[in-house]
């Protein structure tokens, strides 16, 4: 664990702080503007989900170095109600009607790796990685 920093998500302005953190780390790692925008959009979506559905939680950003390549890991975690039907929220077309914006399928597409753990009544943790090419 080379580097990790977190932003607590309590109100909507914290989404901006999380984006800023993500963008700074992405820049440091050498991501181009398009990938920076993808990473920050993914962070926005994850932070927004926390703000809208869990009430509060946090977004952590970590630099990854693995086998000669570097990447950026986003960990979005909350202690909210959890997601009852993960398959459904990962379905295209569901998110837009549910008012989630790009939603989780959008985040999955913006990033290279995506992993979701959720327990009803306990909370949700989402980990997403973008590798530098």
């Amino acid at each position: 664990m080379e580097f990790q920093s977190c932003v607590k998500i309590i109100n909507e302005w914290d989404i901006v702080a999380a984006r800023q953190l993500g963008r700074n780390v992405a820049k440091e790692l050498g991501f181009g503007t398009v990938d920076q925008a993808r990473i920050t959009t993914a962070i926005s979506e994850l932070a927004r989900n926390i703000y809208l559905y869990a009430g509060q939680g946090k977004v952590c950003i970590e630099k990854l170095y693995e086998g000669g390549k570097s990447g950026l890991l986003i960990i979005a975690s909350d202690e909210g109600p959890g997601i009852p039907d993960v398959r459904k929220v990962m379905e295209d077309g569901f998110s837009t009607s549910g008012g989630l914006g790009a939603g989780l399928p959008g985040v999955k597409r913006l990033m290279d790796e995506f992993d979701l753990d959720t327990t009803i009544g306990k909370g949700t943790e989402i980990r997403a990685i973008k590798w530098l090419r």
Partner: peptide, 17 residues
């Protein structure tokens, strides 16, 4: 570019659908 991100996501979703 930032504004177009949403369209980019919608575009990819459309392709998948």
């Amino acid at each position: 570019l930032e504004v177009m991100m949403g369209y980019g996501i919608a575009y990819r979703e459309h392709q998948n659908l």
